[in-house]
Amino acid sequence: MNSQLAILVKGELSRLNKYGVFSISILIAVIWGVVLLLVNSDFLAGLLPFVLFLDATMMSIMYIGAEMHFEKTESTISTMLVTPVSNKNMVLSKVLGNTIHNLVSSLLIIAVFFIAGKAGWTYDVGFNIFVVLAGVIIATSTFTVLGLILSYYQKDFTEMLVSMFVIAIFLMIPSVLLMLGVIQGEEWENLMLLNPMQAAQNIIIGGFPNEAGELVFGFEYFVSLGYILFGGLALFRFLAIPKFQDYAVRQSGV
């Protein structure tokens, strides 16, 4: 990472902290801890993949949307445009900043579930941490890019919430229904591979063993991995960077 990018990422993380986004993540992890302690349910422990999936997708879009909204109200994008920083580094720093934040958030949640398992509040959820974290990082990055692009076209935070609602209805709920077995069948499974939410879920769940206690990296896992990874890169390269200048210019009062 070049020094300019490192400064920008540090700035992003610092602002996420100042705006209380880190505090929200800690609070969410604590709430999970309390719920696991009080409810003492194995069902809840089984929700860990879902919680991580939600954090990497919907929450990523919401966090970057909130950050962009704050910057919009403060017109700080205008002054960033007249620094010797390239648009690519500006956009990349936002993606990296949000991904690092979400990684920390996911690690906190994993730690809470781990402690709950070891303390006997729930069963011990076994998983391959490296595969899970790789899935979280890749999914978070891609969904942060998606959130960034959405924020370019939204006038305010309310519009962002409406977009999230639409994404939840058309992309997330079908994915959750498939996970819960409400919709079943190979055709559905194949069709749902086109759903980026489903692909994100597949690459995170890939780190959790099946009923036989084995990690299975099948066709779905690799298709999902390629889809999210290359889809994210394509969105970054062909939409997030080229459209950033237009967005930033609009924030300068044009």
Binding site: Y19, T79, P84
Partner: peptide
């Protein structure tokens, strides 16, 4: 942009950061 300085008409700072934190951030660029 190394050679030019721009002052916009509207305030352009991160409001949840101190003045010095704002300046130090831009200074490093």
């Amino acid at each position: 942009y190394e050679e030019i300085g721009v002052s916009f008409e509207m305030p352009i700072h991160f409001s949840k950061m101190t003045a010095m934190e704002n300046i130090e951030f831009f200074l490093k660029l």
